[in-house]
């Protein structure tokens, strides 16, 4: 079940995320739930698979901002890392990051759906 402890276990910097949401737990959890439902992760993977680096950058960039704001560190880290080569539109192998992201979003979604 999605709650503060579960998110902390997930690796989120809950204190920081909460502070950004003015320590309103319900508000923070609602936004995390919304972030988990975000289809941007799938959009990012599709764009990379299609070598559409413009679209991939846009998707990664958007996810970077949201995950940073919610302090979803396990998701934010790989996204922030891959944004840099994407900014330069480098057509490299992004799969390691994508796998990490896929696993972590799956874990988060599992928490949400419990």
């Amino acid at each position: 079940m999605l709650n503060i402890d579960a998110l902390r276990d997930f690796g989120a910097n809950v204190d920081e995320g909460l502070a950004r949401c003015l320590n309103r737990e319900d508000f923070y959890l609602r936004l995390v739930r919304k972030a988990a439902e975000d289809t941007g992760y799938e959009a990012l993977k599709e764009a990379i698979d299609a070598h559409d680096l413009d679209r991939a950058f846009d998707a990664a960039h958007a996810l970077k901002g949201v995950t940073a704001n919610l302090a979803l560190t396990p998701l934010h880290e790989p996204i922030a890392e891959m944004v840099e080569p994407l900014r330069r539109r480098e057509d490299i192998d992004y799969s390691a990051w994508l796998i990490k992201i896929a696993n972590r979003i799956a874990a988060l979604r599992a928490l949400v759906s419990e």
Binding site: R20, C21, L22, R24, F27, L31, K34, A35, D38, G65, V66, N69, L70
Partner: peptide, 9 residues
């Protein structure tokens, strides 16, 4: 999400 956080702040 960003919009909501910023509006809330």
């Amino acid at each position: 999400i960003n919009r909501e956080i910023l509006a809330e702040i």
